[in-house]
């Protein structure tokens, strides 16, 4: 027999946990949806950029002893560079190929990256030290760690920055034009090659940022990208392929479903929530909740 108050506290704690998690989920989702929307590439290697971000954080902070706050932008920058390199080497020559072909190439990239990580860092989980105080931030009956709060704030800032880039800059305008109609955009003088490289680099940077932020909260293992990829798919399908607001809201919805599902249904099915969501959404409203265009086929 539990009192009413502890149950309320439990719910509040779940809501807080979900909010914090949702920020990073949204980052992952936005990166993937950008790449799909503009390039028509289903990026199976997305989770590997996430793992890459976390490992770069480990490299800078734990191996090279760099400052935590300096390491974060460095890790993201390296993610951006890896993304750009992948686009130039792997995807550029497949421009115009069908979606299955690029998917196979990205699966190849995913397996290669993951196992190179495994060879480089071994399978043993790594943890990253943080400069945050170890006692949590207490808000009445609920609490959260300073580290998670930091993750949340940075994630929101990055989401805001991405919106600004897409809506306020010339690059963003060209990206939106490419998204709407690639051929017309090309005719209007948009350098499609540059847009693709920039998009893939930006999307990869966001995934690497999510990894660099969450690496210190959890642990860093070579296989951490698998679940991240699959969750990013769930978020993107939920929000509609190619929709950035959809991916943002989708990230939070998924986090809430997981947290509440684990708290009140069964903790074992936590990770199943996303996939159940995909299946239900695709059966009921295949275009997702926020898609701008019908995009089947």
């Amino acid at each position: 027999m539990r009192g009413k108050i502890p149950n309320m506290d439990q719910l509040l704690q779940h809501i807080l946990n979900a909010l914090i998690l949702g920020g990073t989920y949204a980052l992952l989702g936005i990166g993937l949806t950008l790449i799909f929307g503009i390039m028509r590439v289903v990026n199976f290697a997305h989770g590997e950029l996430y793992a890459f971000g976390a490992y770069m954080m480990y490299l800078w902070v734990m191996v090279l002893g760099a400052n935590f706050y300096l390491a974060l932008p460095l890790a993201v920058l390296l993610g951006v560079m890896l993304g750009a390199a992948m686009e130039l080497v792997l995807l550029r020559r497949l421009r115009g190929a069908d979606i299955d072909t690029t998917m196979l190439v990205m699966i190849g990239a995913w397996i290669t990256l993951q196992n190179v990580e495994q060879m480089t860092w071994s399978g043993v989980a790594k943890s990253i030290n943080t400069p945050f105080p170890s006692s949590p931030l207490v808000l009445g009956s609920v609490s959260l760690s300073w580290n998670r709060l930091f993750v949340f704030v940075v994630a929101l800032a990055l989401i805001g920055a991405t919106y600004a880039v897409i809506n306020r800059t010339k690059l963003g305008k060209a990206m939106r034009a490419t998204f709407q109609d690639r051929d017309t955009a090309a005719l209007m003088g948009v350098d499609i090659n540059w847009i693709h490289t920039a998009t893939f680099a930006l999307g990869s940077g966001l995934a690497a940022a999510a990894g660099a932020l969450l690496g210190p909260v959890f642990v860093v293992v070579p296989t951490m990208g698998d679940l991240a990829s699959l969750k990013a798919f769930a978020i993107v399908i939920l929000g509609g392929l190619g929709s950035i607001p959809g991916a943002t809201i989708g990230g939070f919805i998924l986090a809430f479903m997981e947290e509440l599902g684990a708290g009140y249904v069964s903790s074992g099915y936590r990770d199943a929530m996303g996939f159940l969501l995909i299946i239900v959404i695709l059966l009921v409203k295949p275009t997702g909740l926020f898609a701008q265009k019908e995009r089947i086929g």
């Binding site: 799909f36 289903v42 979606i99 299955d100 998917m103 699959l230 798919f233 769930a234 399908i237 392929l241 199943a272 996303g274 996939f275 159940l276 995909i278 299946i279 695709l282 059966l283 295949p286 089947i296 086929g297």
Partner: peptide, 17 residues
């Protein structure tokens, strides 16, 4: 009911569930 990228992702999801 769906094709292309959606079909791929829905099949991945089924296996994962």
């Amino acid at each position: 009911k769906v094709r292309g990228a959606y079909f791929v992702i829905v099949t991945v999801s089924f296996a994962e569930v």
